[in-house]
Design a protein around this nucleic acid. Structure first.
Lengths: 161, 161
DNA sequence: TATTGTTATACTCTATAACTATA
DNA sequence: TATAGTTATAGAGTATAACAATA
């Protein structure tokens, strides 16, 4: 499971230095990742409680969030959720019963059903997103300098040109 | 060569706070948090699949990880999992049936049952932790400079003073 | 009386397999 | 025949409430 065995220019991963490396240092990325993971684990553990503030299950909260981008086919949603399509039926049943989403038959392909948020669903989404946008204490307490650096690093990570 | 896009003459203060220079900028922390959240969401979505590599449910993987620190009372574990104690019974039943953990009655208080990893459980934990320590592609691909900055920022976030 | 863990019950999420209605 | 969604079934995670053993 060694990833990319063609690190030819790699200066080896000497335990200490790695000062002149052009290539990412494996030990360094593990250190950074471990800390990032620690911080995020602590936060993600609260997600069920956060969703419950809106009387949503964690998965339902995720769906509400995804659905804001526009109508989605059931199968596409199953894909986003990394789950079997059969599960989406019951999931959407419950959300539809609560008046959060609507099924609309596609006119191009009448097998397909498109999901859209109802007005109530969209309103709830607004509140949910606002709540989720609140940074956890540990982040909010960082100095501006660190926040700016963090933002820029995340931008580079997410949009790797 | 990096940077420069944000040093617009503002010395990093919020748009209208004017004088007070030491307070973190709320908009900035939200930006950083949104990006961090985006990256971690993408990664956390794979966690069930990662756990499944070891034939563990996500929660079981979490338990295996926690249990490595030493024996835990059932109630303590329930606390870590942020769930009701009644759930831990069935959870541990299944893990015990697979030979991963053991219940041991505490001798100080015979109501309490301490959980410990079996030898097989500890071995599996080693492999699991190693797997979880692998940084996702988006992180591993960052430049050393960014990784070092990220690591240091996370250290400051996690150990405030 | 209070606490630890269990049992009973119910709901949600998840997977697999068989089915329907379209295509 | 193949695909989108449904239904049926089963297992796991979760919550609440009632209970036994122990403190």
């Amino acid at each position: 499971m060694s990833s990319s065995s063609e690190n030819l220019g790699r200066r080896g991963k000497s335990p200490h230095s790695g000062l002149d490396a052009q290539e990412p240092d494996e030990a360094l990325s593990k250190q950074a990742w471990a800390l990032l993971f620690e911080l995020m684990s602590a936060h993600m553990r609260n997600f069920p409680a956060l969703a419950a503030e809106f009387e949503l299950s964690p998965v339902q909260a995720h769906v509400v969030r995804q659905l804001g981008e526009g109508p989605l086919a059931m199968s596409t949603l199953a894909n986003y959720l990394s789950c079997d399509a059969s599960n989406v039926t019951g999931l959407v049943d419950r959300m539809e019963a609560r008046g959060l989403v609507e099924r609309r038959s596609s006119e191009q392909d009448r097998r397909v059903k498109m999901l859209v948020l109802t007005e109530a669903g969209a309103a709830l989404r607004e509140r949910l997103l606002e709540r989720m946008a609140e940074p956890p204490e540990l982040i909010a307490a960082l100095a501006d300098e660190d926040l700016r650096a963090l933002r820029d690093i995340m931008r580079r990570a997410l949009r790797p040109q």
